[in-house]
Design a protein around this nucleic acid. Structure first.
Lengths: 202, 202
DNA sequence: TCCACCATGTAACTGGTTACATGATTAC
DNA sequence: GTAATCATGTAACCAGTTACATGGTGGA
């Protein structure tokens, strides 16, 4: 538990390593090949970030020396790293993040279930919805007040932002519903619920 | 025309100064009070950014010494600054920006009309739509392929991203329509079109 | 032989964050 | 006199970008 903060990239790495012990190369591949493309896959970002995390004691590495292939340094979470990761996940959704940190917010949510379970995900969604419900009317009011004196493209840009937040509101409802469904299934069948693909995701 | 690149914040400043010559304090206020809240309003970001822009010759300052109030340094665009600004605006919409630079993209659009006119805005929207139309199916395919093996929250996070891009597609249509309307009005009435507020923005 | 892929690093640079410093004016 | 607002700066720190370096393995 060092004093310096962990960056968004750092948490993304913690989350992926939490899923499965990985090497720097694995992580880079994840960033290039999966939908996490918003993160940089450059070695100059990832390897130093891993070093920092190791230095602060959140992860620890082990060199895997396999015949043939080049040795790879595989990282796994330490107990304190897992604690930090969960603490990050459990952070309440703030207004500030809703305004300018949506990416990190969604990252948190993506990792949430695996580390905090459905309960954590639901709590997150509820708080998120509250913040969205407070923010959207403000944006609309702003558009109404100043829209007329803006050039059309400025007005439309603002409108685009509002639409995005409204879409998030709808998404919150949808996601909460999905969790309710999953909970109901669990209750009746006593079996780990399989994803219900009816109704079409997206 | 220095060699170093201008950051997103730099372009945001150029755009605002292009609208109206401003002091650092004015610009900070804009970031705190308007919908441009995603930019930092900290003096440690803005004043150095203004200095850099001035050093490279994109803006130039003049100290306004008004009786009573503290002197303020007011910046305005130079000819070369305006050229750089317009060049940035005219940049084609790339896949990369669609994936991880949406913020800058919308910033560009917001400033577009005022500097490049409706023609520029329309060209932007068309290219944007093409990139979105190419990207959205890829995301959906990815969700279909890997969604089942992801935890529900991961799947939902991805779904949220897809919804956002779909909303942008719809927004593109809407925006293009608005520009067509504006063009039609201009043609028939030969008057600078007033914003049509019917149909409800957002 | 040379390319593609596996795999890890380093070094220079730079822009943004946080926090502190300063000082004038207006209103209470 | 003191708080709020106007107004501009500086300094330490740090993370990420770009680009380069290195080297092993397998296949064409």
């Amino acid at each position: 538990m060092n004093s310096v903060n962990i960056s968004t990239l750092g948490y993304a790495l913690l989350g992926l390593i939490h899923q499965k012990p990985s090497s720097g190369y694995d992580l880079r591949k994840t960033f290039t090949e999966t939908a996490m493309g918003s993160f940089s896959n450059s070695p100059g970002a990832i390897y130093p970030a891993l070093e920092r995390l190791e230095k602060r004691g959140s992860i620890q590495s082990e060199v895997e020396d396999r015949a043939g292939l080049r040795r790879r340094r595989v990282y796994r979470l330490t107990a304190s790293g897992e604690k930090e990761f969960k603490h990050w996940l459990a952070q309440p959704v703030t207004r500030k993040e809703v305004v300018s940190g949506l990416g990190e917010l969604m990252l948190r949510f993506a990792f949430m279930e695996q580390a905090l379970g459905a309960t954590g995900a639901i709590a997150f969604l509820r708080k998120f919805r509250i913040e969205l419900d407070a923010y959207v009317p403000e944006l609309k009011k702003y558009l109404e007040e100043y829209g007329a004196q803006m050039p059309l493209s400025g007005m439309l840009a603002l409108d685009s932002g509002i639409r995005n937040y409204e879409t998030l509101q709808q998404w919150c409802e949808y996601a909460l519903q999905k969790y309710e469904e999953a909970a109901a299934k669990k209750k009746t069948s006593r079996v780990r619920p399989v994803l219900n693909r009816t109704g079409g995701m997206s």
